[in-house]
């Protein structure tokens, strides 16, 4: 349903995202997790057709975002981080306007209006002016706006930001209820949010995808363990089996050889440092070890960043 291929976006000399590629299947909920400024909003804006990418291409709901933007926009509901509301309008007038420019048939507007208002808990608020609504309700109007034209794809940028805990639960339930009919991408910088709502998670940091997996796998990776990269010269066919003899080693994978050097990725579990054991195994098997290093930005580091940010945010809301 969504295919992003090597998306890169530069603003002048700064690179917001670099070589971001991923795929989202129909009916799936994908979470974008990353600290503030990681490139979540940039990626979502590209997919929603707000601005084009500098490089790469994106196919959403069967159409190329850059070649057929209008077709894509008809099929995408986008909720920016700050809900794009005309404060002086009533909820009904606003949703009616959005429905019109999103191309909802004239005779269907009323029924769509009733439907999204009921879904987003706005049934009673139709005639109220948006500027008189509380922040939580404004957020709901933002969500209703994204749903009004029954889009195949929903792109939600930090949908729960600024809400109180009860509202957060409501919005998360609402989003879970949308899966199946809609394909959803949502971004957040709050760790528990993805495990509660998403089927698959992309962690993005400094404009690059760090990891893409299910929340369960991520949590298991989190329970300790390290990713160690090796550069080896020599026949490595037997090496994976040898390395697995070390009890802490969970997984060994061979990369593409470069300049006769064979990169090897070793994943370990537990907190024990087994780098010396790995090095010994390599040397004993008669291979040349050129490099041994732990991966620069580990998942933990990112998660620490994420979780600390959530803590500070919670303090702010208290």
């Amino acid at each position: 349903m969504i295919q992003a291929e090597h998306l890169t976006k530069r603003y002048g000399f700064t690179t917001a995202i670099q070589d971001v590629s991923f795929e989202v299947r129909k009916g799936e909920i994908l979470g974008f997790l990353g600290p503030n400024g990681a490139g979540k909003t940039t990626t979502m804006r590209i997919l929603a057709g707000f601005f084009p990418a500098t490089e790469g291409r994106a196919i959403v709901a069967g159409f190329d975002v850059f070649e057929k933007p209008l077709e894509v926009k008809k099929r995408v509901g986008y909720m920016p981080e700050h809900p794009p509301l005309y404060e002086e309008m009533s909820v009904d007038a606003y949703l009616r306007f959005v429905a019109t420019i999103k191309g909802v048939d004239r005779d269907k507007i009323d029924s769509r209006l009733g439907d999204v208002k009921a879904r987003c808990g706005l049934a009673e608020e139709g005639s109220r002016l948006i500027k008189h609504l509380s922040k939580g309700y404004k957020q709901r109007v933002g969500l209703a706006q994204a749903l009004i034209h029954e889009p195949e794809v929903l792109i939600l940028d930090e949908p729960t930001i600024g809400l109180d805990p009860k509202q957060i639960i409501e919005v998360r339930e609402l989003i879970r209820g949308l899966a199946g009919d809609h394909t959803v991408i949502l971004s957040t910088h709050i760790l528990p949010e993805v495990s509660m709502t998403c089927e698959r998670v992309i962690i993005i940091n400094n404009g690059k995808i760090v990891v893409m997996d299910t929340p369960e796998n991520l949590t298991s990776q989190l329970s300790g363990g390290e990713r160690i990269e090796l550069d080896i010269v020599g026949p490595v066919e037997n090496l994976p089996a040898l390395l697995r003899e070390i009890p802490q080693v969970k997984n060994v994978s061979l990369g593409e050889p470069q300049n006769a050097r064979q990169p090897v990725l070793v994943e370990t579990e537990g907190s024990a440092d087994v780098r010396h054991l790995i090095a010994r195994k390599v040397i004993e098997s008669g291979l040349d070890l050129y490099r041994l290093s732990t991966q620069t930005m580990t998942l933990e580091e990112i998660f620490v960043k994420l979780t600390t940010e959530e803590e500070t945010q919670e303090e702010e809301t208290e």
Partner: peptide, 14 residues
């Protein structure tokens, strides 16, 4: 300023 340009630019409007 209000960010409503995001709504207009992501709607099927020319």
């Amino acid at each position: 300023k209000r960010g409503t340009i995001e709504l207009l630019f992501t709607s099927p409007l020319t």
